[in-house]
């Protein structure tokens, strides 16, 4: 399959003369275009998400009332695991074919370029998961009044999940069996997002205001946006050079 150069020729002029926005946009569009060529990989996290949600009624009970009380947590845990599943591939291919090395050599600040890559990852996994969630909510008997909050909390939270997860992906991309290690180092860091994400949906189900939860999710996202790119960049530097 054809791999694109890191910065397409048309944009390479802008990138080399230092236009940061152009370089970020180029990184993002390249990632998106490349992902759209591998549609099966795009569908993987979504299929996983749906499958896990199907397993719960089979494992617990088809009782609607019981499932409805569990639904916020189940949907959130399944979405979290689906994100985790997709993380291993975030830098893997770029690492294998050397384009990650090119990314490190570009004159633009690495944390911002990496941010563009993470945004791409979120557009391809987190956002589709959030859009798909109401469908699974229906299957679990989640009251339809909570769908809006479910989607909003997943959309907000999964961006944080992508950012935090990318730290782990960057640290483990050079390792042969990074997958298991990735979940060990990333899952504990996911817990705050899970608590407030599922909390938002739970309070929406209970008819309570869920805005405070969403605000805290937003605050976590702001912090992650600020700090995670630095850690991701440091992780990539050591994985590529080490």
């Amino acid at each position: 399959m054809r791999r694109e150069p890191l910065i397409p020729l048309a944009e390479s002029n802008a990138a080399s003369t230092g236009s940061l926005g152009a370089a970020m946009a180029a990184t993002l569009t390249r990632d998106l275009r490349q992902a759209l060529r591998r549609r099966s990989e795009l569908i993987n996290p979504l299929a996983f998400f749906a499958l896990v949600i199907t397993l719960f009624p089979l494992g617990i009970s088809p009782d609607k009332a019981l499932l409805a009380t569990l639904a916020p947590g189940l949907v959130w845990v399944a979405a979290l695991l689906a994100t985790l599943l997709s993380l291993d591939g975030l830098f893997r291919q770029d690492f294998d074919d050397g384009s990650l090395e090119q990314l490190l050599l570009t004159p633009q600040p690495l944390p911002l370029l990496v941010l563009a890559k993470v945004v791409g990852h979120w557009l391809l996994t987190g956002l589709p998961l959030a859009l798909m969630a109401p469908l699974l909510g229906v299957m679990l008997g989640l009251p339809s009044a909570a769908f809006g909050v479910l989607m909003a909390s997943l959309a907000l939270g999964s961006m944080s999940l992508s950012l935090i997860g990318a730290i782990g992906a960057a640290l483990t991309v050079g390792l042969r069996r990074g997958g298991v290690l990735l979940s060990l180092i990333i899952l504990p860091l996911y817990i705050p997002v899970l608590i407030f994400g599922a909390g938002a949906v739970q309070s929406a189900v209970a008819g309570l205001p869920s805005l405070p939860h969403l605000a805290i999710l937003g605050a976590m996202l702001a912090l992650a946006l600020l700090l995670a790119p630095l850690a991701i960049a440091a992780g990539l530097r050591l994985s590529v050079n080490g």
Binding site: T172, L175, A231, L238, G242
Partner: peptide, 23 residues
């Protein structure tokens, strides 16, 4: 575990340090 996973000691040290800070 992350410290032990790297073949080179220096990479393991830096990875463990980054993770400790993130933690």
């Amino acid at each position: 575990v992350l410290r032990g996973a790297f073949a080179s000691r220096d990479s393991g040290s830096r990875a463990a340090s980054i993770l400790a800070l993130v933690g």
